[in-house]
Write a protein that binds this DNA or RNA. Structure first.
Lengths: 231, 231
DNA sequence: CGGCATTAGATTGTCGACAATTTTACCCTT
DNA sequence: AAGGGTAAAATTGTCGACAATCTAATGCCG
């Protein structure tokens, strides 16, 4: 089914794109995309001169882009030695999902209190849309739909720190694992039910339950990924 | 071993210092300290030229330092406009502590599983040291002792993401609020009991309880600070 | 007199060159 | 031939100058 292939070609996150202003912005976005999508291999060294030549910008611009990538935890830099793209390891995946579970659990908790009635109505509507696609057997729900869902709840938390940490950092790294370890797999229908229950809890303005359900949802996803990783 | 005694009068975080290598490192540490301690006022604009002159380094170095400060959430940068030190607001404080509660709760949970018996023994010993100082009526326990305690549990989580997020980012912002809003107040004895119960849970290898207690501990602290803020 | 366009000043963004450090290659010694 | 030290090459760090953009001051027009 080449459906999931279609999505990979169109960076999912792009729908929420901040528009680049400076050359450093453009280079940063380009580099980030190339790293996440695997155009630049995980664990490889980033040569400033080489990138400067490839992307047609000065070394200073490349350096700024690399610095930003470092604060996203997508590259690691050592003084006087250089920068390497992070390596993808099973332990790293586990650690990443532990952080996600913690932060997104809190996001769901806060969303139950801070989302407006209108936003909750929109969220329910989104869920209906997803239900149609799931019922129709579309498998691309996984990628785009899931991101969309989590992003809305994250915004609903109204917590700028949470939003920035997850959106600027964690999500890209998560996607890097999914793409490069070839984990676009299904788990669609059960995930949909989990989403439904979370929205239910938020609609009921039940922060504790919303958090618990979100944490379970992410823990399930982690186990699912870890299992595939060990094939 | 009176470790916490030695530390106090200088910047508390310094005990865990990564040593600066490049000029950008030094400038970054210096700037971060000056911002956290209030030498540079919250909300003020950072002029690259001015800083370049004050710190005796080129603008390129200042720019790199500012970029790093941005990823710590200590300054905010806008393209073609410049960087400002973050403003300290009651809402910002609440958001910050929501993130702390979430992340440190997870850290305590993980520590209950991942800390070695030796590390737990050390933690208990640290607690005894703190008990002596509390019994002796020393009030400086608050600052150094509290930081020390939280830092050990954080390390005990063995999760590099958690450690980096809290240590490189959240903690400095937390301290900035405490210092600049003049909140070095006591709450010492109750906080000590909370610490004791958390260590108990970790010693019992009880992740759920450790997380719950840590989250409560931080929530209490938040309420305490918020109350003082509204005087 | 108030508001808007234009222009001068100041600030940030970008670049190429030089300095410092690390890595590699080569030679010498054992 | 293996190991270590030295020199050459390559890479990162730092700098000052120039370009692009924003801010403010000035003057024009309604």
């Amino acid at each position: 089914m080449p459906i999931s292939v279609v999505i990979l070609n169109r960076p999912v996150m792009t729908q929420f794109n901040e528009n680049p202003i400076t050359a450093a912005d453009k280079t940063f976005f380009q580099l980030r995309s190339d790293i996440v999508e695997g155009v630049i291999k995980a664990g490889s060294k980033l040569s400033e001169a080489e990138l400067s030549s490839n992307y047609q910008v000065s070394r200073a611009v490349v350096r700024e882009a690399i610095n930003r990538l470092e604060s996203c935890h997508l590259v690691e830099r050592k003084a006087n030695i250089g920068a390497r793209v992070v390596a993808l390891t099973p332990e790293g995946l586990v650690e990443l999902y532990q952080v996600r579970e913690s932060l997104e659990g809190m996001a769901a908790r806060l969303a139950a209190t801070n989302m407006s009635d209108d936003e909750i109505a929109d969220l329910n509507e989104l869920l209906n849309t997803h239900f149609q696609t799931v019922k129709g057997g579309e498998t691309y729900y996984q990628e785009a739909g899931d991101v969309d869902f989590h992003y809305r709840i994250l915004l609903g938390s109204k917590n700028a720190h949470l939003i920035s940490m997850l959106f600027d950092g964690i999500y890209h790294l998560t996607r890097m694992y999914r793409v490069q370890l070839g984990m676009a797999g299904p788990r669609v229908t059960t995930a949909f039910d989990e989403h439904r229950h979370i929205v239910q809890a938020i609609s009921n303005r039940d922060p504790e339950l919303a958090e618990i359900l979100m944490r379970r949802h992410i823990a399930y996803t982690q186990k699912n990924l870890a299992a595939k990783l060990n094939d």
